[in-house]
Deep mutational scan, measured.
Amino acid sequence: NQASVVANQLIPINTALTLVMMRSEVVTPVGIPAKDIPRLVSMQVNRAVPLGTTLMPDMVKGYA
Rank of each mutant, 00 (worst) to 15 (best):
D58G: 08
V45H: 02
L51S: 13
Q2G: 14
Q44S: 08
V41Q: 08
T53C: 13
P57A: 12
A64G: 12
D36I: 04
I11G: 01
V60I: 14
P33Y: 11
D36M: 04
S4L: 01
I13K: 06
P12C: 14
V30M: 09
V60S: 01
V41T: 07
M56Q: 14
R23G: 12
L40Y: 03
P57Q: 14
T54N: 02
G31N: 01
T18V: 05
Q2P: 15
M22A: 02
N8K: 10
P50Q: 14
N1T: 15
V27A: 06
N8T: 14
T53F: 10
Q44L: 09
T18S: 08
V20P: 09
K35A: 15
V6L: 06
V27L: 07
V60W: 01
A7R: 01
G62C: 14
M56P: 00
D36Y: 04
L10D: 08
G52M: 09
G31S: 02
P57T: 14
S42K: 09
T15V: 10
I37E: 03
G52A: 08
R39Q: 11
Y63G: 04
R23C: 09
N8R: 11
V49C: 08
I37R: 05
N8L: 05
I37C: 13
P12T: 10
P12Q: 07
Q44P: 11
P29I: 07
V60Q: 00
L19T: 06
V26R: 03
V49Q: 02
A7E: 00
S4I: 02
V5L: 03
A16C: 15
I13F: 11
A3I: 11
Q9E: 13
L17D: 02
N1P: 15
M56T: 08
S42I: 03
P50M: 07
Y63S: 04
P12K: 08
N8I: 05
V5H: 00
P29R: 03
Q9T: 12
A7I: 06
D36V: 04
V5N: 01
L40H: 00
T54G: 03
R39V: 10
Q9C: 09
M21C: 04
V5A: 10
G62L: 13
V6D: 00
T28E: 15
L55H: 01
N46Y: 10
Q2E: 15
R23L: 09
A3F: 07
V26C: 14
N46I: 14
M56E: 06
R39W: 10
Y63N: 04
M43S: 12
E25N: 05
M59L: 07
T15H: 08
L10H: 07
S24Y: 09
T54H: 02
A3R: 03
V26P: 08
G62V: 04
M22E: 02
Q44R: 06
I11M: 06
T28H: 05
D36W: 03
N14V: 03
M56F: 09
G31Q: 02
P57I: 10
Q2H: 15
K35M: 15
T18R: 05
V20Q: 09
P38N: 12
N14G: 12
I37P: 00
V26H: 12
G52Q: 04
G52W: 06
R23Q: 06
G31M: 02
R47P: 02
L55R: 00
L19E: 08
D36C: 07
D58K: 07
R39E: 10
L51D: 14
V30G: 11
N14K: 04
G62A: 12
A48L: 11
L51E: 14
I32K: 00
L19C: 14
V41L: 11
V6K: 03
I32F: 03
V27G: 03
P33S: 09
M43H: 08
A64N: 13
D36G: 03
T15Q: 10
G62M: 13
M59A: 08
I11A: 01
L19W: 06
I11S: 01
G31D: 01
K61M: 09
A48V: 12
Q2C: 15
T15N: 05
V6I: 13
L55G: 02
I37L: 14
V60K: 00
L10A: 13
V5Y: 00
K61R: 11
V41I: 11
V45D: 01
L19Q: 11
T54W: 02
I37S: 04
V27P: 02
T18Y: 03
L10F: 11
A3T: 11
M56A: 06
E25S: 05
S42N: 12
D36F: 03
R47S: 10
V49T: 05
M21T: 03
L10K: 07
R23N: 09
T18K: 06
Q9P: 01
I11K: 01
P29C: 13
M59K: 02
Q44F: 09
M56V: 11
V45A: 07
M21F: 05
I37A: 07
Q44M: 11
T53E: 10
V60E: 02
G62N: 12
A34W: 13
S4F: 02
Q9M: 14
N46L: 11
G52P: 01
E25A: 08
T28A: 06
V27H: 03
T53L: 10
T53G: 14
T28W: 04
M59D: 13
N1C: 15
V26Q: 09
M21H: 11
Q44T: 10
I32T: 01
T18A: 08
V6T: 07
T54E: 01
N46K: 09
I11N: 00
P29T: 13
T54Q: 03
I11H: 01
A16Y: 06
P57K: 08
V30Y: 11
D36A: 04
P29N: 10
N8S: 13
E25V: 04
K61N: 15
T15G: 04
K61G: 11
V45P: 03
N1L: 15
A64R: 11
M22G: 01
I37G: 05
A16P: 12
G31A: 03
N14W: 07
N14I: 03
V41H: 09
G52E: 08
N46E: 14
P57F: 11
P29Y: 10
T53N: 11
E25T: 07
I37M: 11
T28L: 04
M56W: 07
I37Y: 03
A34H: 04
S4Q: 02
T54Y: 02
V6M: 04
V27Y: 02
Q44W: 05
V45Q: 01
L10P: 09
Q2K: 03
P50G: 09
M22I: 10
Y63L: 07
K35I: 14
V20H: 08
T15D: 04
A3V: 05
P50K: 09
L55T: 00
V20F: 08
L51Q: 12
I32G: 01
V6S: 03
S4H: 01
P57M: 05
P12H: 08
S42A: 14
V26N: 10
D58I: 09
P50Y: 09
R23E: 07
D36Q: 04
Y63D: 04
P33F: 11
E25K: 03
